[in-house]
């Protein structure tokens, strides 16, 4: 049974019109031998059509779990324990599995992190394209592959995935997920992490171009602050399962409000003189997603007593939404 949608919960409203995706107070819990581990807690945000929301966080912050929860493809030992996911007027958590299956791929697409593991190694690439795209004729194929800059592989479609490079496979998957299916919502999980810098630049350009050409709506998950700054309209920062700050991309980099966001930006080498010690964040994230108060409290430079006891509500500061007791103070 799907949990009751809870009303309220200050969300990050999308500025660009009615929301295509609306997430409220979402919680995901993993059952492990050591008991239940909350992986995502009280996450709320809205996403408008044509908008790209970047989710950034370090490993274990819950960003990939959140994406998997949106697809309702969580592993068996994990479950959505609270919250509401609205997608184009449908309550995703109330859908039966067969209804959800009809949405996956066609209306909600996914670009995975490792293209190689998403394709069958023993079937030619051309045949796999036909699996996913019904009634694919030559003209359409040409159009799709040309659209992602892969025109040159048209005569190699009887080759197997291992005969292509990682960048080519990733563009192939983008051709299927974004152009072939034209889903309303595209979810991308670290889609450029395994790619080389010059190939990553190609894929990022391609995604932005597709947004402008076909109006992609996308949630883009990454740990790379540089990448997220280039593709996102708005950015959400995750820490220990919580969305601690959501702000327009420029705003986030120009005026980070949450102490964690600040610390993260200050740790970037490019912001230091060569050979100078980098600012780092003391302590570790281990155990933070079980804490009752603010998960960043044990490492925070601006911590006060109540941070350890009470998880801060979302506050609006300028154009940013921040979960911090001291948001808006001059820290």
């Amino acid at each position: 049974m799907a949990p009751e949608p809870k009303a309220g919960g200050a969300a990050a409203p999308s500025p660009a019109g009615p929301a295509l995706l609306s997430v409220r107070d979402l919680a995901v819990t993993f059952r492990t031998r050591d008991g239940e581990v909350p992986a995502v807690r009280e996450v709320s945000f809205d996403l408008a059509r044509g908008e790209i929301l970047g989710l950034v966080g370090e490993s274990g912050s819950g960003k990939s779990t959140l994406l998997t929860a949106l697809m309702r493809m969580l592993p068996r030992n994990a479950g959505i324990t609270a919250g509401h996911i609205g997608f184009d007027g449908t309550d995703l958590l109330a859908l039966r599995e067969d209804g959800m299956r009809r949405l996956r791929g066609d209306r909600i697409g996914l670009i995975p992190q490792r293209p190689m593991t998403s394709l069958s190694p023993t079937t030619s690439v051309g045949r796999q394209l036909r699996w996913h795209l019904d009634g694919l004729d030559e003209g359409r194929l040409k159009e799709l592959l040309g659209g992602v800059g892969l025109g040159a592989v048209l005569d190699r479609l009887d080759s197997y995935p291992f005969e292509f490079s990682g960048g080519q496979l990733q563009r192939l998957l983008i051709a299927v997920a974004a152009l072939g299916k034209q889903p309303d919502l595209l979810l991308a999980d670290e889609p450029t992490t395994t790619l080389d810098a010059t190939v990553q630049a190609q894929v990022l350009r391609l995604l932005l171009e597709l947004r402008d050409r076909v109006g992609l709506t996308m949630v883009f998950v990454t740990h790379d602050l540089g990448v997220i700054s280039q593709v996102s309209d708005r950015i959400g920062v995750m820490y220990a399962g919580r969305l601690v700050e959501v702000a327009p991309a420029r705003e986030l980099f120009d005026a980070p409000r949450h102490p964690y966001t600040r610390a993260l930006l200050e740790a970037i080498p490019g912001r230091h003189r060569r050979g100078e010690p980098l600012r780092s964040i003391p302590g570790t994230v281990t155990g933070a997603n079980r804490l009752p108060g603010c998960p960043f409290a044990p490492r925070c430079a601006a911590v006060v007593d109540r941070c350890h006891e009470e998880n801060p509500e979302v506050r609006e500061v300028g154009e940013s939404l921040v979960r911090c007791h001291r948001a808006g103070e001059d820290l």
Binding site: T198, A201, S229
Partner: peptide
């Protein structure tokens, strides 16, 4: 130029791959 960073447009990519 391919190194992404805030305030930078994605670089005009090189053609093809290594």
């Amino acid at each position: 130029a391919a190194v992404p960073g805030p305030g930078r447009e994605p670089a005009a990519p090189l053609q093809g791959e290594v």
